[in-house]
Design a protein around this nucleic acid. Sequence first.
DNA 1: GCAAATTAATGATTTATTCAAG
DNA 2: CTTGAATAAATCATTAATTTGC
Lengths: 210, 210
Amino acid sequence: MSPAGSPRWSPTTEQLMILEELYRSGIRTPSASQIQQITTHLSFYGRIEGKNVFYWFQNHKARDRQKLRRKLTKQLQLQQQQQQQLQLHHHCPKLNQDHFTNHFVGNFGYSTLRSTTHDFPFFNPPSLLFQGGAANTSSEQALSCKWNVHNPQSNLVESKEMAFCNYGWTLVDVDNNQASSCCTTRPVKTLDLFPLTTTRISEDCTTPPK
Amino acid sequence: MSPAGSPRWSPTTEQLMILEELYRSGIRTPSASQIQQITTHLSFYGRIEGKNVFYWFQNHKARDRQKLRRKLTKQLQLQQQQQQQLQLHHHCPKLNQDHFTNHFVGNFGYSTLRSTTHDFPFFNPPSLLFQGGAANTSSEQALSCKWNVHNPQSNLVESKEMAFCNYGWTLVDVDNNQASSCCTTRPVKTLDLFPLTTTRISEDCTTPPK
DNA sequence: GCAAATTAATGATTTATTCAAG
DNA sequence: CTTGAATAAATCATTAATTTGC
């Protein structure tokens, strides 16, 4: 029933574990090069394509956020309920200073949580990686585009290449092996994503965080 | 000041005219192959990349919808205002049949328009096109992915290829030169997008619609 | 007329929502 | 119900119109 091609990728346990490891390590929106490297690496454990890696991170990030939001709104509701219950039970016993103070503190706590929901405290920027060769410049008329750009700062002509990333296309600076400057430039470093053999992965993270 | 590389593409007049022509002809979400063909065609009039075409359609469609929505809400507001004014001036003169009829017709007109906003009456499905060769199957490990899928219906193994389209990646059925069935399958026909020489474009639409 | 300063369009990204397979 | 895949909405950022003062 599923000999060669299932219409939809489903990650093997090892693939999932590695992906989650990478996610935990801070990677959220891998670049094209990263995706390629991850894909290559994970294809050792089973069929996988670049788009699968791409979508996995996309969804995982989104659903993390979603989970957080729900948690917070639930907390908020609980808090509000508790407040109401307090008010109900005590039923305006005196309308004294204490009453108002309590109320205010409650609201304050709420708005704090809200703002936390918006700018997520997602660790440090992702640790990036670029291999020596980068994406091999394949046939000219392929679906990836290449072009040259004159950099007024360095007064040099850099060749750019379109690669998929972050929905749609993203630029890959071919010369520097670096994410293009047209995106908000994040600190891009040359780290190795897989410095060890992957056996180290199966250390203790047997239960993926629910 | 803008010799080779501007960080952002800005379409030439001809390019714009052709794009709008295509849009008017019904194309909304061109497939990878379409984008490639359009890009090739438009590159005759100036620098252009596949992603530009892709984004252009994305944005144009979205902003069309937006425009429509605003128009309709404005209409709605006007109608409601008029109704209120009517009620103020006439001030329940008789509460007769006519009054209610009027009111009802107003609301009816609105809700009809609303539903129109949702499932857009965008003409017929886009007239598609696929050239003979399609995307040449370039180097194996490039940023586009290829794989095989077993089709239970035809009992054949089809090769698929990832191409960019509709945000992120989309499948291109290499064997059939046809958009993948994983997307909502629209009637795909083999029509020529540019049957005539492009000189026919500059007929009368000298002023792009503001 | 013509540049500096604002504003409006619109190209490019990111985030949220939806669909559908398992 | 989970989650891979796809689409739509919202947002950011740069360019082009335009206004304004000279």
